[in-house]
Amino acid sequence: MLSVIRTIWNVFLHSFRRRVTIQYPDEKPYLTPRTRGRIVLSRDPDGGERCVACYLCAVVCPVDCIALQATEDEHGRRYPEFFRINFSRCIFCGLCEDACPTYAIQLTPDFEMSEYNRQNLVYEKEDLLINGPGKYPGYNFWRVSGVQISGKDKGEAENEAPPTDVYRLTP
C-alpha cells in the first residue's frame, strides 16, 4: 500500500522534470559524425574518384541495394561506369563502408530522405558523388597503392621501395 502511494508521488514529481523530447522539425537533434545515414561516394584530396569499382560493397550488401559497373580510363585506372544505390532498400547497416578498401563509400549523418515518389529514392552516381574526402581527409588510395597509373609509376607510391630490377644480379 505504501509502495503504491510512493509510486504515485514519484510519478507526480516528474511534473517538474525537464522533458527529454527533442521537437524534431523545429529543433534538430545532434547526430554524431559516425551516424549511419545517407551513403556518399567521396573523392581523394586530389579530386579524383576514390572508388575503384571492386564490387566488394555490392557483394557485402545484405539487401543487394548497390549496383555498379566497373570500367577503366585510358591510363588503366579503374572507376565505376555507373553506381546506383536503391535507398528504398538500404538498411543503413554500414557493411559497405567496412568493406570498402579505398574509403570511397561512406555513411553520413543525414537521414532526411523522404520522397513522394519511390523512384526518386534510387540514387545514381552523380547524386552520390561528393566533392570532398569525407571522413578521411588526407587519405589517397592511389598514392599508397602499388598500382601504376598516369603520373605515378611503379615504386613511386608513399612508403614504397622501387621495384627490383630482375635483370641485375646485385641484391
Partner: peptide, 8 residues
C-alpha cells in the same frame, strides 16, 4: 501522461 513521462 506525457508530462509525467517527460514528454510533450
Amino acid at each position: 501522461l506525457a508530462l509525467w513521462q517527460d514528454r510533450y
